[in-house]
Amino acid sequence: MDTTYSVPATVPIPSRPLYGMLAQFPAVCFTLTLLTDIAFWRSANILWQNFSAWLLFAGLVFGGLAIVVGVVEMLARRKTRLFRPSWAAIIAYVVVLLLAVANSFVHAGDGWTAVVPYGLALSAVTFVVMLLAAWLNRSVVSRRSVGVNHYA
């Protein structure tokens, strides 16, 4: 006798928004930009400056794409509204992208001064603001008790 049991999900979570997957790319690119700036500062090898410039470019492209997809998803899909960040997190994400644009202009220069000291400082500030934005976004998700079963 073959018996199958169906166990209902305890918390109905909608499919993961595409924005959440795209938003990881700028975070990785901007973090690696900080690391490559530190490597350039310590070694003065021009290769690290080139890596930083390309990482900034990739982070800005994916960041812009994530913003467009996030706005479209927020308007088109009602289920993702539960997961949208607070206004403080949205402002922090925009500040991250603006800092990255400024950092990209600084990195467009040639030689040592393209990274040290202003490019390195902007990379560090971008990283810190990115952490703040992630923390603000995470606090919204935990405050709304996403994924918590109150009836267990």
Rank of each mutant, 00 (worst) to 15 (best):
A9I: 06
R138A: 09
I91F: 13
S43A: 12
G20Q: 04
P17Y: 09
L98E: 10
A44D: 12
N45V: 11
T10Q: 04
L132P: 05
T31C: 05
F40T: 04
R138K: 07
S43N: 12
V148K: 07
W87S: 04
A133S: 06
A108F: 09
C29G: 00
G70C: 11
W87R: 01
W87I: 06
Y93G: 03
A102D: 12
S52L: 04
G119W: 05
V7M: 10
F127R: 02
A100I: 11
L98D: 03
A9E: 11
V94C: 08
L22K: 00
I46D: 15
H107F: 07
T113M: 08
M74F: 10
A134N: 12
S142E: 04
V125W: 09
V95A: 15
V11I: 08
A133K: 00
S43E: 12
A102N: 07
L22D: 07
G63Y: 04
V7N: 02
L55H: 00
A124G: 12
A23W: 13
W48N: 03
W135G: 06
D110I: 13
I67M: 14
T80A: 11
G59M: 11
V141Y: 00
S145N: 10
D2R: 05
Y5C: 02
T113Y: 03
I13E: 13
T10S: 04
Q49R: 15
V115C: 00
S43F: 12
L132R: 02
A121L: 14
Y93R: 10
L99E: 13
N45L: 05
V95C: 07
V11H: 14
T33Y: 00
R78W: 11
G70N: 14
F51G: 05
A23R: 13
R81L: 03
I91C: 02
S6W: 05
